[in-house]
Amino acid sequence: MTTTTADRQGQTAGASTGGGAPTTRGRRRSRHHWRRRRKEYALFLLMISPNLLIIGTFDYWPVIYNAWLSLTRWNMLSGAPRYVGLQNYENLFSSSSFHGILLNTLTFSAAIVIGSVILGLAVALLFDQKLRGRGIVRTAAFAPHIVSGAAVATLWLFIFDPAYGLTRVVLDPFGVASPRWVNDADWAMIALIIAYLWKGLGFVAIVYLAGLQNLPEELYEAAKLDGAGTWTTFRRITLPLLSPVTFFVLVTSIIGTFQAYDMIAVLTGGGPGDATTTLSWYVYQQGFRASDAGTAAAAAMLLFVILLLVTGLQTRFVQRKVHYT
């Protein structure tokens, strides 16, 4: 009895891999087959279980428990979480400093997205030209992407030093004094954006470059025959065809900025005041500095929902858009 149902299940699974012989050649053969298949199932479980266990414990369980924590009040040190309903969310939405933090997050994210798309595409177009030395520049541009954010941020902290930094060296010939960058509430966000863009720009450019090199040659020849100028070709052919890449850049930039810790930690620590405190930094601050697990969890849930919406949007958009080939 169990054999037959399991067998059918096995067959559906087998069909999807395209492997496996038909199992309808007599009882003995099918029993032998079933034994082999059971061994295969066991091996499958054995092979995926370490990974599954880690992902379940450290990726999925947190989502569930974090959702519960967001409905509680708890200092993370002693006692147990106490249920308070939606109070944490209400507190967040009614606090004006939290509105400022949301605005910071939006500013940071939008600046990085727009900067990455425009500058990344511009640099990619440059890299797409047959210029001597472009290989070295390409390597140099990509390198910051794989260096630790803490290291990049520390380097920029020195660059931004008003007295001894590189910005003074650059600005001095123009008779302009360097701003106080990270110590000035008006400049700190700009400093963070510059450093963050610098770290990621090469990556975006390489992604765009790969997109450019994948574009069909024929279209450009046809456009040339039609007498289309460079700008028209770029606007009417290159940009639309690159839209899936642009969307990828958009989504990865948003996801990246929403999870940014290291550069904020080193450059500004969220300051001065709250000037560079984003949603992600706020989660860390509330959880590990203020020991307020409930508020931190609520802010994290908010962030999670926003990211889910963004990712969902990408899946829909890309599915619709990518079929031109």
Binding site: N51, L52, W61, P62, Y65, N66, L69, F258, V283, A300
Partner: peptide, 20 residues
């Protein structure tokens, strides 16, 4: 299901993983 873990941002896992 396993692939879906890519959608879980590190912010959400931070507190709970610390507790775990």
């Amino acid at each position: 299901v396993m692939l879906g873990a890519l959608m879980v941002p590190n912010n959400v896992t931070l507190i709970v993983n610390y507790i775990t």
